[in-house]
Design a protein around this nucleic acid. Structure first.
Length: 785
DNA sequence: CAGTGAGCGAGCTTCCGCTTGACTT
């Protein structure tokens, strides 16, 4: 082998191999191969913060393979991505594989085309140690922050908690949004809308009053005043406006659009995008770049021109606005723009369609829209009023990119331009007759809670986190139970509606549900308490600008202006002093709240965080009699639990009586209410209330479950059974965890639903086995290629 | 799916960014 090229992703390696020909072998490092140990700090603080790297657990085999390949190669080319992490990956490879820096070639390209790769090969360089040092500073800082603060949380709040530069700020955003919502006081206001008729009576015009009323009396007085008024078209103002398409997808914008348009979680979007990438349908899905390669621009232009004509084409190059974007890859786009749809499963197809449309639209002409605003004056017998009705219309003059793609928004409030539509033909001074007016009460809404995707957008705006970590960050804060994803039902509110028709006002009240939310992120008690603690003791790290500030230092390291160890030292010395002080001086915090006093015993009831989660406590810790404890249920929280709910928790676990010489205990566990008897668990059905259930019903539940288990055991005893021989080898039928299957020549074949494994005939078995063998051999051939 | 929640103390937990494994009854 002459040349060994190492890239970061195996999918990429296969592609590049095609471009480079027989003299090149392309292998992948699968990301980083070395890191700080997970078990310890692995930073020698005394020795200038020297990091102690080791080969990542799951990468040993791969590193061995790479070492073998290096021995056979004349030249090694390190082709990891052109960013901080990519440079560090190249350096770790150089160190681990003991490559000679003088002869090892470092190459970069940010699009996978033959031209770009051949060009890269012609311009090799050596590893940029400044860039590597910037990465080491980033890595060391994150480790110091995460591994020094987390243990404080274990001792002061609860074991196994975590804190970090990214996750703690993500939680802060959610906690603060919730506080904002709690403080929010909804105001009601009245909107007045009207319907007019043209002199001929043929045209209808909808309009809205130029002002809103805060109080019902004002609205009512205005409506009264409309009687006896005349109306006419005061002015017609027409403007043409342009709308431009959104840039091609980055990871973050793809996650947002897939969430809004397809309802995908960010993790699901990434999983599906990964499949599209591996199957060659799209370019790399973890990117912060909106840039399209020249090849992509050309391909897209051709496609637009072919489909819609040249007047729909507009070549655009987009600039990133994201703080700290590294742009090592292209934007996310189809690899082949002429492929409008793909044959794949529905979610893959839909995500691909979204990417295709967005990419196509990004290279299309602006839409031209004619906007018309018509003012309708209100004239009392004493003269015109200051207020007027406004009627707005929109007409698309040239659809441009709108032919393909409209970006959605997060804005859930009613748009002010709700009544935008095509206007009837109106003329200046045309008199109009009021046929109906309506004053409807509305309520202002609190800011919406974050969805996974809108949180990602916010983090990206703050320059916090990277495309590869957005989805994992969400998973982390959910796993730590700092936040939960929930639906919230709306609250019914009464809205007064006054309608003026034929000179009379009729008032009615309509009940509307407002503020319902789906799949939103809510802070938990633990999230709130941890956030309060971190804000009090580590305000600098919780600052929304912390990342942006340290990123500037990293940039200075990358450009050789600063030394990474000094940057870390400047941060660490005061940080560590703070850590020590906090460990010594801060109080243990449990978020304790006095819920009330138990009327029966006169003991106090508290709600707080314990070692295993949130709990309620009956009685004081300091009193002679030991207090009782009970875990809270899902959905209950320290802030909102009532005395009744808290006291009810002490009724469980409940001993309902004896059966077969053993206690029958009823309680609620992780999987819902259950009965425990002789060490076994029996789930209660939905209609059984664990607080009310009788011993008789428990025994019935136990007996039913036993009967089912007996039947199952009897069935299992009949397996495995031999069905017969196929070409001299025995076939046996069995039932596994995932259903019935056949075993033949030490391979397993799933049975279709229609066939009973007990009564299966040898003919049926032969067909399944032979059919299955063919399929697997085809699959293997495919893999081998 | 229990028990736990004070305290004793062993031994565990934890960060962010790169990237995909290989598990089948």
């Amino acid at each position: 082998m002459k040349n060994l090229v190492i890239v970061e992703s195996p999918t990429k390696s296969k592609k590049i191999e095609q471009f480079l020909g027989a003299d090149y072998t392309v292998l992948s490092s699968n990301g980083h191969i070395r890191d700080l140990s997970k078990k310890e700090m692995s930073i020698d603080i005394e020795n200038q913060y020297e990091p102690e790297y080791q080969i990542t657990e799951s990468q040993h085999k791969l590193v061995a393979d790479l070492k073998r390949a290096v021995k056979e190669a004349e030249t090694v080319w390190l082709a990891s991505d052109e960013d901080r992490e990519g440079e560090a990956i190249a350096w770790h490879l150089q160190e681990t594989l003991k490559l000679d820096p003088a002869t090892t070639k470092r190459i970069v390209f940010n699009e996978i085309t033959q031209k770009a790769i051949l060009n890269a090969i012609e311009h090799p360089r050596t590893i940029d140690m400044n860039l590597v040092d910037a990465q080491q500073a980033r890595r060391v800082l994150d480790r110091l922050v995460g591994y020094e603060i987390s243990p404080i949380l274990w001792s002061k709040i609860k074991p196994a908690l975590s804190a970090g530069r990214v996750q703690s700020v993500a939680v802060r955003l959610i906690v603060e949004r919730e506080e904002e919502i709690k403080k929010f006081v909804s105001q009601s206001y009245f909107r007045v809308t009207s319907e007019f008729l043209s002199p001929s009576g043929k045209m209808q015009v909808h309009a809205e009053l130029s002002r809103r009323f805060d109080r019902q009396e004002e609205a009512a007085a205005f409506m009264e005043g409309l009687n006896g008024c005349t109306f006419k078209v005061e002015s017609i103002d027409t403007k043409t406006a342009k709308r431009s398409p959104a840039p091609p997808f980055t990871t973050s914008t793809l996650q947002q659009e897939a969430s809004r348009k397809l309802g995908f979680s960010v993790a699901r979007t990434m999983q599906i995008a990964q499949q599209l990438y591996e199957n060659g349908f799209i370019t790399y899905m973890r990117t912060d770049s909106v840039n399209l390669s020249d090849l992509a621009l050309e391909m897209t232009r051709d496609e637009v021109s072919y489909m819609y004509g040249d007047n729909y084409v507009k070549t655009r190059r987009y600039q990133t606005k994201t703080k700290g974007a590294q742009e090592a890859h292209e934007a996310i786009r189809p690899t082949d723009m002429s492929k409008h749809v793909i044959t794949a499963e529905t979610p893959q197809r839909r995500l691909y369609e979204l990417i295709w449309k967005r990419t196509i639209a990004s290279q299309m002409a602006d839409a031209e829209i004619e906007k018309t605003v018509v003012d309708i004056s209100i004239n009392t017998p004493d003269g015109p009023k200051d207020d007027k009705f406004i009627c707005q219309g929109e007409q698309v003059r040239f659809d441009g990119f709108l032919k393909v793609y409209i970006e959605s928004t997060d804005d859930e409030e009613l748009s002010d331009n709700e009544d935008v539509h095509t206007l009837p033909k109106l003329t200046q001074d045309m008199p109009l007759t009021l046929s109906m007016a309506k004053a409807a009460e509305h309520h202002t809404q609190h800011a919406p809670r974050y969805t996974e995707a809108s949180l990602v957008k916010k983090l990206e705006d703050l320059g916090i986190g990277r495309p590869s970590t957005y989805a994992p960050t969400i998973s982390t804060i959910l796993k730590r139970e700092y936040v939960i994803k929930e639906d919230r039902e709306g609250v019914p509110v009464d809205c007064t509606i006054m309608v003026l028709k034929d000179g009379k006002i009729e008032s009615s009240i309509r009940t509307e549900k407002t503020g319902s939310e789906k799949g939103k992120l809510f802070p938990t008690d633990i999230g709130t308490v941890v956030n309060r603690f971190l804000m009090e003791h580590f305000a600098n790290i919780m600052d929304y600008n912390f990342t942006a500030t340290v990123e500037r230092d990293f940039d200075d390291i990358a450009s050789g202006k600063k030394e990474w160890r000094k940057v870390i030292d400047k941060f660490y010395v005061p940080f560590h002093k703070n850590i020590k002080q906090t460990q010594q001086n801060s109080q243990r915090t449990s978020g304790e709240r006095l819920v009330g006093v138990d009327p029966k015993t006169g003991k106090k009831v508290y709600a707080k965080i314990g070692r295993y989660g949130t709990l309620v406590q009956l009685g004081d810790t300091s009193s002679e009699e030991k207090p009782k404890f009970a875990s809270m249920k899902k959905g209950q929280s320290i802030e909102t639990i009532t005395l009744e709910e808290a006291l009810a928790l002490f009724q469980l676990p409940r001993n309902v009586g004896q059966f077969e010489n053993d206690d029958v205990i009823v309680s609620i566990g992780k999987f819902g209410p259950y009965v425990r008897h002789k060490g076994l668990f029996y789930s209660l059905s939905k209609n059984d209330d664990p607080y009310e259930i009788t011993l008789e019903r428990c025994i019935e539940i136990i007996r039913i479950k036993r009967q089912i288990e007996d039947d199952k055991a009897r069935l299992r005893a009949q397996f495995p059974h031999t069905v017969g021989d196929v070409e001299g080898y025995p076939v046996s039928a069995n039932i596994g965890r995932y259903g019935p299957y056949l075993t033949y020549r030490s391979k397993n074949f799933r049975l279709p639903k229609e066939i009973d494994p007990l009564t299966i005939t040898i003919e049926e078995a032969r067909e399944i086995v032979k059919d299955g063998e063919q399929k697997t051999s085809r699959g293997r051939k495919k893999k081998a290629q």
